[in-house]
Design a binder for these strands. Sequence first.
DNA 1: TTTACATTAATTGTCGACAATCGGAGTCGT
DNA 2: ACGACTCCGATTGTCGACAATTAATGTAAA
Lengths: 225, 225
Amino acid sequence: MLPNTPQQGTLADIASHRLAHSIVTGELAQGQKLNEAELAERFGMGRGPLREALRHLEGMRLVKRIPNAGARVVVLDYKTMSDLYEVREALEGMACRIAATRMTDEEINQLSRLLDSHEMQIEQQGGGVYSQSEGDLDFHFQIVRGSRNEMLMDMLGSEQYQLQRMCRYRTSRNAQRTRPALQQHRQIAEALLQRDGELAEILMRRHIQGAWRSISEAIAREQKT
Amino acid sequence: MLPNTPQQGTLADIASHRLAHSIVTGELAQGQKLNEAELAERFGMGRGPLREALRHLEGMRLVKRIPNAGARVVVLDYKTMSDLYEVREALEGMACRIAATRMTDEEINQLSRLLDSHEMQIEQQGGGVYSQSEGDLDFHFQIVRGSRNEMLMDMLGSEQYQLQRMCRYRTSRNAQRTRPALQQHRQIAEALLQRDGELAEILMRRHIQGAWRSISEAIAREQKT
DNA sequence: TTTACATTAATTGTCGACAATCGGAGTCGT
DNA sequence: ACGACTCCGATTGTCGACAATTAATGTAAA
């Protein structure tokens, strides 16, 4: 997968990955205080590397640091998620537009094959996992890679990718959207194949808007309960 | 100004600001090796805070760290700048679209007054400084603030803002573009006043595309010499 | 009982020293 | 002379201890 955890490198990187995982999966609650000494001991390292890891996670927007008051896990409230999806719409829309002019035919074909495998997965497992699984993220990131824009890849890959996954872990997925989502993916791939960047951008932006609407409604239903 | 340097807070933050300034202004050359011990002594602090500062600057894309090999100032080559402007086009375009629906009338009027002061500045000083000065950035960031999107504000303010300034310090500005740029700003403000988000986005994207074309051509001319 | 203040405990910020790793100078062999 | 190997210096990575700041607790006065 994309930015997975190679258990190697400096201790700060290891701590960063482990903490990111714990935060994304919810093992560490939102807004929870992160005690440096405690975490350092749990990870079997000094406080130095751990502080660097916290600084890194702050850059990824997974924790919020307040001077002389410690670090806390970020709180994914409605406003934050809304902001995230607005940014994603802009960034991935642009990625789509550019990718239409820079991806090779082979890459686009590979994208279609990826969708085929997703469709098979849906048929087999009944369609409840597609939009939830990491497969959806694969599709999106393949297009981002196709834009050949390193900055976009960094932003959407390393940083927002984690917040995105955090969203998914917290919000109950509704399986109704898996088939329309796949259909929209197919339309986007088709637009890319036709080298119609403008259309691809519009479709991607609509796709992300739809995803946000779905999540937004799910949250509303949840809070009404 | 926006993220200015409050000479207070933790040493790591101070080092981060001072280093960022030195990098943006070119005091530290592109690709230059950043020696931890040397910088720590120059700033009169230990290596701990300095390492945290480097981690922070890495998140801002101002330095590139390689494990066990130290940190170097980022190299702003053509590709990197191109990527930056593509991202800016997407982000600021979206900011414009949203700002059209969320800015208050008073904020938009203030935007117009800002442009008035810019025009006066051009009349006085002959028009060579506008696009180069920070005034241009003020206009752009006011709109970003108008989007009410915290993530956009962080991305464009704290992070890309520095790379953007770095671009400006390095590329020779051509004064020919200052008046068209002001005119485009006026059109954008007008679209915001009319609450036409779609138009405002298109205008902003064209504006940034134009700025990139200008810089791109300047670089081409420079390299031909 | 409540509020204000002072003392204390805990946590963050910082420093200096030690260990691990990498790059390069120098040397040896072919 | 060229290449590979070895050793050494320099730099990064890490740790433990100390200082400074914050938050909390308890106490005393209104």
